[in-house]
């Protein structure tokens, strides 16, 4: 009896202790939370001095928040892309941040009141120097390349990178985009649902080039000591891909959420995210990037549509892609 009582009291106290630790719930993309993703590192760094419990809930980001509406459990969402910011903003579910954005080192101006960028890269065609000695040195050269150059891309209707490619083509070729797609079509081996399938096929040797990011070679260089993967750099410019975080308006942990948004631009986070997420840190001067990142081939010209422009261009650009590739 005595023992039971002590046990019950102990359990009660333990629950109390847990209840006193505030929980910050962060929705993140699925790959974030594996032991190879950035999630565990972010959690360790942030929990080191927030006196809180950061819990990642991986899976769909915006669709889930929109389904849940104001009742969402999320305090913060991390890993959003620019193609959803417009809808996310319009939902009214996200709140402005109070982060000082002056530390940003992005290649584009960023003054958004709601979305805080934490890392970036650019769309690029990645190739293996052992299989393809001379990669096209411009987008025009890629279109002119013989049809036995084999490309794998992603579908703009089901993947973020595929959509970025469609906007990239639009930015480079404008009204001629559909004709450019038609010229590219014979070289496209296939179109995959997402980035993983395409990159897996590329590493298996199914194609000479794959639509990926300018930062992909950094993974091979740093993690595998392999310098044969390169991104072909085009003088016409490359489309800017950035990952964002935002605070929910209905969060019950507003202070922690603010602290988290400031934290993602802080030096410890920014020094980690390069090799943690294989992307360029959003607020870190180039000289402080991890070593392999210094060696990356990066574009001089960076192309980027505002969310309003992108929203207006998106459907016609996808339709042009579909028509040209369906012939």
């Amino acid at each position: 009896m005595q023992k039971t009582f002590t046990l019950a009291a102990g359990l009660f106290l333990a629950t109390q202790a847990v209840a006193q630790t505030p929980v910050l719930t962060v929705y993140a993309p699925d790959y974030f939370v594996s032991e190879w993703g950035p999630g565990p590192k972010i959690e360790a760094l942030f929990e080191a001095d927030c006196a809180c419990d950061l819990q990642f809930k991986p899976g769909d980001l915006l669709p889930r928040v929109l389904l849940e509406g104001a009742r969402t459990e999320a305090d913060v969402v991390i890993g959003l892309n620019t193609d959803v910011t417009r809808r996310a903003r319009a939902s009214g579910l996200f709140a402005p941040h109070d982060v000082d954005l002056s530390a940003l080192t992005l290649p584009v101006d960023w003054t958004d009141e709601v979305f805080v960028p934490f890392n970036y890269s650019h769309t690029a065609f990645v190739y293996n120097t052992e299989r393809l000695q001379e990669a096209p040195d411009s987008f025009a050269a890629l279109l002119e390349a013989p049809d036995d150059l084999r490309l794998i891309i992603q579908d703009p209707r089901s993947s973020v990178s595929g959509l970025a490619l469609v906007l990239w083509m639009q930015a480079v070729f404008g009204d001629e985009a559909e004709a450019a797609w038609a010229q590219l079509a014979p070289k496209i081996v296939t179109v995959t649902r997402g980035w993983s399938e395409a990159y897996g096929l590329f590493t298996d040797g199914e194609a000479d080039m794959v639509l990926s990011y300018t930062t992909s070679p950094a993974y091979h260089l740093i993690a595998e000591g392999d310098d044969t993967k390169k991104a072909a750099i085009f003088p016409e410019g490359h489309y800017f891909m950035v990952e964002l975080a935002a605070k929910l308006a209905g969060t019950d942990q507003p202070d922690l959420a603010d602290a988290f948004l400031s934290f993602i631009l802080s030096e410890p986070f920014q020094s980690m995210i390069g090799t943690g997420n294989w992307s360029i840190p959003a607020a870190l001067p180039q000289k402080d990037w991890p070593e392999g990142f210094q060696a990356l081939d990066l574009p001089e010209t960076v192309l980027f549509y505002s969310e309003a422009e992108a929203a207006a261009l998106r459907d016609p650009a996808i339709e042009a892609w579909r028509r040209a590739l369906s012939r």
Binding site: P29, D30, Y31, V33, S34, W36, G37, G39, Q55, F56, K57, P58, G59, D60, P63, R64, L67, W195, S196, Y199, G200, S216, Y219, A223, W278
Partner: peptide
């Protein structure tokens, strides 16, 4: 995808997560 939990991944989900991280 809507129900995923970091600590309760199934094996197929784990395959996708690994691929997503190179």
């Amino acid at each position: 995808a809507l129900f995923a939990d970091p600590d309760r991944a199934t094996l197929p989900l784990q395959v996708y997560r690994l691929m997503g991280s190179y």
